[in-house]
């Protein structure tokens, strides 16, 4: 049984191929303006990597904001269900998933079978999302990859009070001009996302263990800030950014055309 999951997010397109409950290949690329072109490329890259032919695929599920654009998909499922399934596939102990994507963040609680018990999503606002981090890194003139590591060097993190991405950017620029240390400001930014995520997730009953998914899971500073806020360890899978696509492919394992 070979299945494919395609996750079209606001920033990146992700694809995963699973054969008999084993991940064969994954890949990702920027979504850009032409969504169809983007998923086509990622889809063929992934099946080439997996060394399979298109006709060998039994079932395809698409997910994410652009899921409707995937005309080769046999089924379209929301990213919420897919992130729950992906986390369960990667680590069946997980009971709470926190996914921080490009334009939204969500918290999902799971039962022992990986089924969704409840979920919450962020408000209509980019604060506490991957895009917020991108904007802040740019405002600080720091490469996104270095952003998280720098926050770990902070001695006295500043407090970012604005919840709005645009206003927080001006707040950050003000702090820069006041001569605040770069790593302290960056740590403040990470703490601000962590506390926003915490107050959202708190609307659910948070059961451990928690897994962090989405592209920002690569950011060690944010993981640390979240662990502090949630007062517990957080599981980060090496497939964090691909979790939605893996979840889609995993759900597709149970389907036959």
């Amino acid at each position: 049984m070979i299945s494919v999951g395609i996750d079209i997010g606001s920033i990146t397109v992700k694809c995963a191929v699973i054969k008999d409950n084993e991940i064969l290949a994954t890949s990702l690329d920027l979504t850009g303006f032409d969504v169809k072109k983007a998923w086509n490329k990622v889809f063929y890259d992934t099946i080439n990597k997996a060394n399979i032919l298109e006709k060998q695929i039994d079932y395809i599920i698409s997910t994410g904001y652009g899921r409707e654009s995937v005309d080769i998909a046999d089924k379209k499922i929301t990213e919420i269900t897919c992130h729950g399934a992906g986390a369960h596939f990667l680590d069946p102990r997980v009971r709470t998933v926190i996914d921080i994507g490009g334009q939204d963040s969500k918290a999902i609680s799971l039962d022992k079978n990986g089924r969704i018990l409840d979920f919450v999503m962020n408000d209509k606002c980019a604060a506490g999302t991957g895009r917020f981090l991108e904007v802040m890194a740019r405002a600080m003139g720091v490469d996104l990859k270095e952003f998280g590591n720098l926050s770990l060097e902070a001695k006295d993190p500043v407090k970012i009070s604005s919840l709005c991405t645009v206003f927080a950017e001006s707040e950050v620029i003000t702090m820069v001009s006041k001569g605040k240390k770069r790593e302290d400001i960056i740590a403040g930014i990470h703490n601000s996302i962590a506390s926003r995520t915490f107050s959202m997730a708190n609307r659910l009953q948070i059961s451990p263990p928690i897994m962090l998914t989405g592209g920002v899971a690569k950011n060690k500073g944010l993981v640390k800030a979240l662990e502090k806020k949630f007062a517990q360890d957080i599981i980060v899978s090496p497939f964090a950014q691909l979790n939605g696509a893996i979840g889609a492919a995993y759900l597709a394992q149970n389907h036959k055309k």
Partner: peptide
């Protein structure tokens, strides 16, 4: 987009429940 996703996810939740 957000409301659509929430509603669809909610229906998926009802289906599994």
């Amino acid at each position: 987009g957000q409301i659509e996703s929430r509603i669809e996810a909610f229906v998926e939740l009802l289906e599994t429940r």
